[in-house]
Computed example of a mutant assay.
Amino acid sequence: MTDIYLTKTPTGALVPADSDSADYLKKHKVGQGFKAKITRARNVMFLRKFFALLNYGFDTWKPLEAVYHGQIAEKNFKQFREDITILAGYFETFVRMDGSVQLRAKSISFANMDEDEFESLYSAVIDVLLKRIFINQTRGDVENVVNNILAFS
């Protein structure tokens, strides 16, 4: 199976979005039928916005001090991102050898999450951050800060 990228025109037709897609379609006869599973291509700028949101949340988050076996536990961005994703409801469950259940954040890679699901995740993450970190801010306040962060990137 070959992945090609299409763009919707004002008439509703789907046309090749890049030269590789156009080249692939040129190899086939006019009128040739195709079966397609359509997903919206991921928006790289929206992914950057998602990480700007997470970075803003991480920078704002002030965890309680924790000590484990005499070692002070440090906050960690990767763990923060996974925890926020799980709290937003985007996780998989696994049974461990001891019979306990483990939650793992869903992958946000382009191959594992389409644009529609990613937009839903983004919205759910803002809700979690508003409830747990940005307690005195509105969704609009947070969006403005994230957009300003992106403007300086």
Rank of each mutant, 00 (worst) to 15 (best):
K62R: 13
E92A: 02
N148Q: 06
F91H: 01
F94L: 09
K49D: 09
T93H: 01
V125A: 01
Y24Q: 04
N147E: 15
E117Y: 01
D141W: 12
G57Q: 14
K29Y: 12
V67I: 06
K37F: 10
S21V: 05
M1R: 00
A17R: 12
K62C: 03
I4E: 00
V125T: 01
I72C: 09
G70I: 07
H69A: 15
H69P: 02
T138E: 02
K78C: 11
F51N: 08
K27P: 07
F118V: 00
L54H: 06
D114P: 06
D83P: 07
V146A: 03
K131Q: 13
D98I: 10
F51Y: 07
S123K: 15
L53Y: 04
K29C: 03
Q79Y: 08
A13D: 15
V146Y: 12
V30I: 10
Q137D: 04
G99K: 12
I86L: 07
A111G: 09
L47M: 04
G33E: 02
K8H: 04
G89K: 00
N147Q: 06
E82M: 15
V101M: 05
A88S: 12
T9G: 10
M113V: 01
I135M: 09
F118A: 05
P63K: 10
Q102N: 15
S123H: 14
G57V: 02
E119Y: 03
I108G: 03
S123G: 14
I108R: 03
E119D: 07
S100Y: 01
V44H: 02
A111Q: 09
A105R: 09
S21K: 07
G33A: 10
D3K: 05
T138G: 00
D116T: 04
Q71E: 15
A36L: 14
P63Q: 05
E115I: 07
S107L: 13
S100C: 10
V95C: 12
L47D: 04
A52T: 01
N144F: 15
F77D: 14
I135T: 09
A151Q: 02
S21P: 07
E117R: 04
S153G: 08
D23N: 02
P16D: 03
N76V: 02
F118Y: 14
S19A: 07
N148V: 03
N147V: 08
F94C: 13
Y90E: 08
T9N: 04
F50W: 10
I38A: 08
K131P: 14
V44F: 10
S107F: 08
D59Y: 01
D116Q: 10
G99H: 11
L121Q: 01
V125M: 07
L121K: 10
T11I: 08
H69F: 11
S109Q: 10
I4P: 11
Q137F: 12
P63F: 02
T9K: 00
Y90K: 04
K75V: 01
I133M: 14
V146R: 00
N43K: 13
K62E: 05
L64N: 09
L130Y: 11
I84Q: 07
S153C: 14
Y90F: 15
T7L: 04
M1W: 12
L47V: 13
L64M: 15
T2L: 05
V145W: 09
